[in-house]
């Protein structure tokens, strides 16, 4: 199968405002299209920092410093564009519509289930009620939660269970038809059954969307992902196909980590 890149991270370094030293140093990592890339590594190694660089959520807070490139494929022109060059608010908005993000804890907005899913669409200018209804339903079906909530679309999303809320958040992101979705430990706050549902959903999503997922769960990474990146104290130690990383790691550190010798 031809490997098609959607993203390419080049010599990326990142330092938080006021931090004494960089949290990420010289990261080089490809992200393949319609594949699941897992990022693993001990707590504090910089997984979230890297993930949050990809849709530039960091830029909500001032004075962070970064160098290098994060190239994102522009599907229309088939060319890569460096997202770190983005300066205008409109382009940020466009970037975040193309690169969605799911957080560790479900983050339903304080509004109804329907409005949660319609939120991004409305921001994007979709006004037609019929179009909205359709897209909301498709997104909720896509997130495998339609059956559970089709009768309570007008109810507040705060009343759903944690697992349902997380799937709602995925539906909300999916509704925008992003090219990439970033997941930051999406199941670490959930029970095993909800976790399974989310994992199935993520595997399902990769048909249309490229996925980067941070996880602390080795089984999850090996079950789910096609590629795995192992990070350690701000550096990318090893990146390879998932089975290679888990069965035959090149680096001693990687082996120690996945066999649970530290972490």
């Amino acid at each position: 199968m031809a490997k098609e890149l959607i993203m390419d991270i080049k010599d990326f370094s990142f330092k938080y405002a006021g931090a004494p030293k960089p949290s990420l140093e010289n990261i080089n990592m490809p992200v393949y299209k319609n594949k699941i890339t897992a990022m693993i590594g001990p707590s504090g190694c910089g997984k979230s920092t890297l993930l949050r660089s990809i849709n530039r959520i960091h830029d909500l807070y001032p004075n962070n410093e970064y160098t290098g490139k994060i190239n994102l494929l522009n599907i229309q022109s088939d060319e890569f564009e460096n997202i770190l060059d983005i300066k205008k608010e409109n382009d940020f908005i466009r970037l975040r519509q193309r690169v969605g993000m799911i957080f560790q804890k479900p983050t339903p907005f304080p509004m109804s289930i329907y409005d949660n899913v319609a939120y991004g669409l409305r921001l994007d200018g979709v006004k037609d009620k019929k179009v909205l209804d359709e897209k909301v339903e498709t997104a909720l079906r896509g997130a495998a939660i339609w059956d559970e909530c089709k009768d309570r679309l007008k109810e507040s999303a705060m009343g759903m269970s944690g697992g349902q809320q997380q799937r709602l958040c995925i539906a909300r992101a999916v509704a925008l038809k992003p090219e990439v979705i970033l997941f930051d430990e999406p199941t670490s706050a959930l029970d095993p059954i909800s976790t399974k549902a989310i994992e199935e959903l993520i595997s399902e999503l990769k048909k249309d969307i490229s996925i980067v997922i941070v996880t602390h769960n080795m089984q999850q990474a090996s079950r789910l992902s096609d590629y795995t990146a192992f990070m350690y104290i701000g550096e990318l130690i090893e990146y390879n196909k998932t089975d290679k990383i888990f069965l035959n790691p090149k680096e001693k550190l990687t082996e120690d980590y996945i066999t649970g010798r530290f972490g």
Binding site: N55, I57, L60, I93, R94, R96, Q97, G100, M101, F103, T107, F109, Y119, G120, L123, D124, C169, R172, A173, L176
Partner: peptide, 8 residues
């Protein structure tokens, strides 16, 4: 952040 991540 999740609202910003939706393009708000």
């Amino acid at each position: 952040e999740s609202a910003y991540a939706m393009g708000a």
